[in-house]
Design a protein around this nucleic acid. Structure first.
Length: 477
RNA sequence: GGUGCCAUACCCAAGUGGCUAGGGAGCGGUCUGCAAAACCGUCAACCCCGGUUCGAAUCCGGGUGGCACCUCCA
């Protein structure tokens, strides 16, 4: 099975090949844990999970690294700006370490609820300070760094290919008036190590050859990816917003420190989730939606996962409640349709070695979609169509769907828990049970008007009765 | 100002030169007393104007509208 990805490096579709046969080193930029992740952040991790799963589906062993940024960097590359972690701590009256622990935990909980596979490594930036310092030392010894009063900066002029990745035309950028140079030599120069002012203590700071301070915000990704994967990554992922500054700087740092060894071979960038009024979701603009808010509104986390699967990762996806509801309905119907098929396969005990020819065609269609720049919406369409394709036996369809679910990650083999029903006290439950029993009596004597009258009465109590082969069930609406 | 992206039916959304994408909603039906679910059927689109071509949603030019990045961001 062949995989093709749109590589930001070169901006074109390219057949994927790993450096080492059968093995993939994949680094994905993770969260800064100063606040909850919003559903826009999470879209990226869901898409990266589809990628991870598609690679494993294709037979690769994936060394998957997602960093946890628990050290504050400044809110800008210039000298001013606040530290996000310290800001979070001030906001909540806690220490930065408490903030990091709390939001890391919340993040991992979302990760699990979305059924995202655990990365091979979850490195924390603060656990890799020595590696970051030595990376900066490499750069300094090779002449790529210079000192100012407050920091050690990377001199982007020394890296000829600096603007290539993002398509920045350096001469035009220089004409820009929005960049305050401060002590920097070039507007694109960025801090490798920030030195704490003599008279001020920071919550997080470390000794270094340049004085007590903290690493620049691009350094951690370079240092940790090298430590855990190697100098050259097969795949590096992130949001489109990172192309311009973060990833451009990661490339500069890494390749200069490693004497030109290419930093990453494939760059995949996720497009944003937008809200209806065309804003991207952003924490800095105030209100934002978390996964918990969706859950509180009665959605299952996997409804959101399905929602993400309906759009290609390089396209904007517009969030609105009706759009999410539509995806939820599609998701629930899909599960109801596939559950009997999966059950039929599990009961059939068919040896799963070879696939009959007519099933092979479906398999090929699904894999082809994955291979076309990870076209999950198309793959999902194939799955939806197969679920209704009666030319294949139920067991065979169940077998294919279960196999494909290794990529879709919807946990089709288990049923989704019912949404939290409104709490009902014992007295009320007893009254409802009595009414339902009375209705059953009426139905048994075919007294339909009476049965319907009771259904109506229950409806007034916000109770919905559903008749099943094993008798009626009810739930509070 | 610089760079780039997008426009597909009621809604979401695939599609990159000929081959029914898919889903949700709606409508009609089958089946269950009714309801729910399921199943079947149905509906409809390629922003505008030119061009290339036997053939264009798809390629090219122009226009209009929307958006993103260039400051922390997924």
């Amino acid at each position: 099975m062949k995989l093709h990805f749109h590589n930001t490096l070169g901006r074109k579709l390219q057949e994927f090949e790993s450096l080492e046969p059968g093995r993939v080193g994949m680094y994905c930029c993770g969260p800064t844990v100063y606040h909850y992740a919003h559903i826009g952040n999470l879209r990226t991790y869901v898409n990266e999970d589809f990628l991870r799963r598609a690679l494993e589906y294709a037979g690769y062993a994936v060394n998957h690294v997602v960093n946890i940024t628990d050290v504050g960097h400044l809110t800008s590359d210039a000298d001013d700006g606040d530290d996000k972690m310290e800001k979070g701590a001030a906001r909540e009256g806690r220490t930065v370490w408490e903030i990091a622990a709390h939001y890391t935990e919340a993040f991992l909980r979302d990760w699990q609820r979305l059924n995202l596979l655990q990365p091979t490594h979850w490195p924390k930036a603060t656990d890799y300070i020595p590696q970051q310092i030595s990376l900066v030392q490499e750069l300094e010894s090779r002449g790529y760094a210079y000192r100012t009063s407050d920091a050690l900066y990377f001199d982007t002029e020394k890296f000829a290919a600096y603007g290539d990745f993002a398509g920045i035309k350096m001469d035009k950028l220089l004409a820009g008036v929005r960049v305050d140079l401060g002590d920097k030599k070039n507007p694109t120069d960025f801090a490798l190590w920030k030195i704490s002012p003599k008279d001020k203590r920071r919550a997080m700071e470390w000794e270094s050859p340049w004085g007590v301070g903290f690493p620049g915000w691009h350094v951690e990704c370079s240092a940790m990816s090298t430590a855990l994967i190697g100098k050259t990554l097969d795949i590096h992922c992130g949001g489109t917003d990172h192309i311009r500054v973060h990833h451009t700087n990661e490339i500069a740092q890494s390749e200069c420190a490693h004497d030109g060894v290419p930093f990453a071979r494939f760059w995949l960038h996720n497009e944003f989730l937008k809200t209806e009024d065309s804003d991207k979701m952003s924490k800095s603009s105030g209100e934002f939606l978390t996964l918990q808010v969706l859950v509180d509104r009665g959605f299952h986390a996997l409804d959101y996962r399905y929602f993400c699967a309906t759009a290609h990762y390089r396209k904007f996806l517009t969030f609105s409640w009706p759009n999410l509801e539509s995806a939820r309905d599609a998701h629930r119907a899909f599960r109801r349709r596939t559950a009997p098929l999966v059950a039929a396969f599990q009961a059939s005990q068919v040896p799963s070695a070879t696939l009959p020819g007519d099933a092979k065609i479906w398999q090929d269609r699904f894999e082809e979609a994955l291979g076309q720049d990870l076209n999950i919406p198309k793959a999902l369409g194939v799955a939806q169509t197969l679920a209704r394709e009666t030319a294949l036996t139920e067991a065979l369809r169940g077998r294919l769907l279960l196999d494909w679910d290794r990529v879709l990650g919807l946990s089709l083999e288990v049923s989704l828990p019912e949404p939290e029903a409104e709490a009902v006290d014992d007295d009320e439950a007893a009254r409802i049970d009595a009414l339902v029993a009375a209705r059953t009596v009426a139905r048994e004597s075919k007294n339909w008007p009476e049965a319907d009258r009771i259904r109506k009465e229950l409806a007034d109590l916000k109770v919905v009765v559903t008749d099943t082969p094993t008798g009626p069930t009810w739930k509070k609406a």
